[in-house]
Nucleic acid binder design. Structure first.
Lengths: 345, 345
DNA sequence: AGCGTATGATTAATCGATTAACCAGTTAAT
DNA sequence: ATTAACTGGTTAATCGATTAATCATACGCT
């Protein structure tokens, strides 16, 4: 910056003012400075700016477990949304453990992030971290900034299956302590209506009892007239799907299967998976916008008034989910022939 | 820092020396300063340090496409390896496009990263970016810093299938321009031996001709006596698997299927997928170590000697891959009964 | 005693950008 | 005509940590 100033015989303050458009500089001079800056390939030093302004223009993204298959979508959306408004994204993985998560958060804080986006793990408590925090979980969680409307998503798949004539459902969850999963299943149940039946199983509990790779015992449920299996994630839907196929049960002719999240493999498995898609880009946009708004209001850090919000609030806290009807869901099998055996390929 | 100095009546330079262990400070005083620092909850300012030292302690991770299902593993491993040696990780997604990638890289540079880890997309050229770059691709790519030994991995699965008695193979690739995939397939072919046959299909080409969700036409190959299908990714193996199951073909009784990468769903589909696992943690460790070594040698930026390396070199450039034998691969079906129909479940 | 050498700590400059305070002209207003 | 207000710019302080240069003692050795 001082090089530009020297080259044009002005002071560096003027250069700063010209480039930031803040002080009073003649339009003429602004042009010259801009041109010179380009010419010299000037790139503002983040360190210098950060030191002076106390802002790093970097946000932290805290994830419960990066290896979650949904993470790519999240990271991509957050990175795009942040970079659109001039922020970088520093990642931190807490590998499931709550203690690790606390460490991860402090590492980010020490790095001087201006704000945090947290995808919480059950049991996560965000203490006072000294910077704005956006939380992306589910609308029913207190402090949630913005998230997909998982309840509505559940309702949408369920209604789809009901419309197809299904009456007997198996709902497949993974972790009974997850708010997101509970909302999804809650939404499903709310839409099932009076003349249907449903059973819910939780895989984590099941696997704890029977081992990691045990069969899910789907056949029993099907013998019990279940014709639709709705899972809270495509990962579990996939597990269901392949288990059924191995047992020779036709999807969707005998049983319909649905998932959630529209993971990358969902469109390409056979039959392609009916699922519920979340608009992560929009969620990210809202979360980042809320965060940035808070950051740029310039918190006087010490002043912790009585209404010290733990997390920021977005314009909208729910983003609608979209049902993706594909090949794994179809009309309920007629009850007359519960076990069709013909090669209906 | 000056607060600590004031509180103990010493100069801030002494505090700096004490905490960094660089200058000469009496052991006694070092203790007192450490204690005071803890007491005051001192956290060094990254901005101040970065400004003075010219180092940000942040690395950039450039990915061709975050939505790649392998990305979680990569990001997690890189983040862990970096944070172990005191670095943060800033992500940048290039969404497949080469132009976007260039932009993403400059954004990272402007943010002042000390080094870059690039997972290149075919056609990626890393220009002179002014900081050390580690490239993670495949050993056969010029400039590759470190990566899994994809060729060896291919050889391992192929040998496994040969040992099971298979003689007629279908190799499934996606993108014929990908170095990684070519190495994997090359490795497979190298291990197939003389009295076997194989055909290779490339999904991208296929899908271009027949549409995104077209059948892969596996049945024809199987009628042609193929008993083993080896894909270059679990994603494609999964597609193969479900397509076979829908057609009523038993895996592994009639046909064995293998994949690559040990993606998150691979152990839980039915049958669980035989695949090749890469030790991403070790790859990340080597890449980061190479990068950090280069960074901390302190490049005099201007001095671009004739041997200006484009990318850094790691101690080892190949990391062995591990074969994970699971349920989707089994002995070759006896040629006498190419189409067993009994319910051998 | 006198000289050289460690030891332990201080001073002050520096990195690059921002910004409050100030200054010198010019124009407008009373 | 004198003051007020505006314009276009400059000065200098500041953010926090690092580090070369320097200084003041104390110690060891002949």
């Amino acid at each position: 910056m001082s090089m530009i100033a020297d080259a044009l015989g002005v002071s560096s303050a003027t250069v700063s003012n010209a480039l930031s458009g803040k002080g009073r500089v003649s339009a003429n001079l602004v042009d010259k400075i801009r041109k010179k800056a380009d010419e010299l390939g000037y790139v503002p030093s983040n360190a210098g700016r950060a030191l002076r302004t106390g802002r790093s223009n970097v946000l932290g993204l805290v994830l419960p477990d990066i290896s979650n298959p949904l993470f790519p979508q999240i990271a991509q959306a957050m990175e795009a949304a942040a970079s659109n408004v001039g922020y970088g994204v520093l990642i931190a993985d807490s590998r499931g453990k709550v203690t690790t998560q606390t460490q991860a958060i402090s590492r980010l804080i020490e790095r001087g992030v201006d704000g945090l986006v947290v995808i919480p793990r059950r049991g996560t408590r965000i203490g006072d971290v000294g910077c704005p925090v956006a939380m992306v979980d589910t609308p029913s969680t207190p402090g949630n900034t913005v998230s997909a409307d998982h309840w509505e998503g559940g309702a949408k798949v369920a209604r789809h299956l009901v419309d197809l004539g299904h009456k007997n459902f198996l709902l497949v969850g993974h972790d009974p302590a997850s708010n997101v999963q509970n909302d999804r299943i809650g939404g499903m149940k709310s839409a099932l209506g009076r003349n249907t039946r449903h059973t819910t199983i939780w895989l984590e509990t099941l696997m704890h009892e029977r081992g990691e790779r045990a069969s899910l015992g789907l056949i029993d449920h099907i013998k019990n007239d279940v014709t639709a299996i709705a899972a809270v994630s495509d990962l579990h839907a996939l597990r269901v799907l392949t288990e059924l196929q191995t047992a020779g049960i036709k999807v969707p002719q005998q049983v319909s299967v649905t998932g959630f999240d529209d993971l990358i493999f969902s469109p390409v498995v056979t039959p392609s998976l009916t699922t519920v898609h979340m608009d992560m880009a929009r969620i990210a946009e809202l979360a980042i916008a809320a965060l940035v708004r808070e950051i740029e209001q310039g918190k006087p850090a010490g002043q912790n008034g009585k209404a010290a919000k733990q997390t920021v609030t977005a314009d909208t806290s729910k983003v609608s989910m979209e049902l993706m009807v594909r090949a794994s869901s179809g009309p309920a099998a007629s009850p007359d022939a519960p076990f069709p055996t013909g090669e209906t390929l």
